[in-house]
Amino acid sequence: MASTHSPNSPQGLPLLDIEVLRTFVAIAETGSFTRAAQQVFRTPSAVSMQIKRLEEMLGRALFVREPRQVHLTPEGETMLGYARQLLELNDEAVGQFLSPQVGGTVRLGAPDDLGTRVLPGVLSQFSRNYPAVQVNVRVGRSPDLMRRLDIGELDVVLMIAEAGQRPHARAEAIYREPLVWAGREGGVALQRTPLPLAVADRGCAWRQMALSSLNRSGLRYRIAYTCEHTGAQEAAVLQDIAITPFPRSLVKSPIRMIEEEEGGLSALGDYEVLLLRMPARGAAVEALVQHIIDHFAGQTTAAAAAPAESTA
């Protein structure tokens, strides 16, 4: 926690807590207490308490709280610059003493859904903790990534599968989340017949889960928008061209979650993030694997503790 010593106390000016600053920066960058909580592996209520104490210590409001997001006050903008400098200096200093013994190159493969939305933030933190480790990332289709793992071209692979499915003997589930139907707020795509869908190309677990659910329910549908990236699916939904299967954590306004049984739709079930690694690849690989596992464990904890947005 941030120190509460008075500036006039014998201890001098209060000291800023690095972990509180990390939380502060995460909120500023995401515009959300809930999403920031996922990044720093804390509950939204703990994050709110950290910021409340920081604001009390500084005697300034750092955020303006609104129903769907938060944004910085002018004093918060000033604090953000200092916070980023302090965090960078802290990570550099700690890294010089704790991480030099771990070095080398790790070849990591991931599908687009993870490679564009999740990995950049995960790898940014990893590089600060392990500056001597170089991570080379390949984003591609899961079958190709598994083939490259088997022939030794990759050390670690992340992939997405329907919960309980194991497409590879070495697959380890590290995260589980509901897949939900998503559509545009106020949109009419859900009312069209046949139902227009935006899905990824063949081989995508989310596509297969969606089509299996529709076939079970007997609904007529057509694939109106086929793409390789979730960003394209999201764009199709935003334009009300179609509905799409989406991870619950990615559903943000103006996209909404379509409730079960709405429009005759049935639940899609859960998907899992699987991790595969080549055995005995060294300390650098193990360090990255543990970092990734810790990240997803933090997401699971935050999601379980915070079913709704908290900006208090």
Rank of each mutant, 00 (worst) to 15 (best):
V139E: 00
A37T: 03
L119H: 08
A132I: 02
Q69M: 13
V70Q: 00
V102G: 05
Q39L: 15
A93V: 08
Q125L: 05
L149T: 10
N136Q: 15
V106F: 12
G115M: 06
Q38I: 09
N129H: 10
S127M: 07
R141V: 08
R117A: 14
Q101F: 14
M79F: 06
S48P: 11
V137G: 06
E75V: 06
S124C: 09
Q38T: 10
Q38S: 13
L114C: 02
D112R: 13
Q134A: 15
R68E: 15
P100D: 07
E55T: 09
R53T: 06
T73P: 04
G31K: 06
R35F: 13
L145G: 08
V102E: 07
P143T: 02
I51A: 07
E88A: 09
V64R: 10
E88I: 00
G76T: 00
P143A: 03
R138V: 15
S142D: 08
D91C: 10
L62F: 01
E92K: 08
R141K: 04
D113I: 15
V106Q: 09
Q96Y: 04
T34S: 15
G140Y: 01
F97D: 04
G59N: 03
R53L: 07
N90D: 10
R84N: 09
P100R: 09
V102H: 03
G115F: 10
L58P: 06
P131C: 02
V47R: 08
A83N: 05
S99G: 07
P111V: 08
Q69T: 11
F41M: 12
G31Q: 07
Q101V: 14
Y82K: 12
R141T: 00
A28N: 09
E75Q: 10
A46F: 06
T30P: 11
L72D: 02
H71E: 12
R68H: 13
E66D: 12
V133T: 02
M79V: 03
R42F: 07
G115D: 09
G31A: 05
E77Q: 14
R60P: 01
L54K: 00
V106D: 12
L145W: 04
A36K: 02
R128W: 10
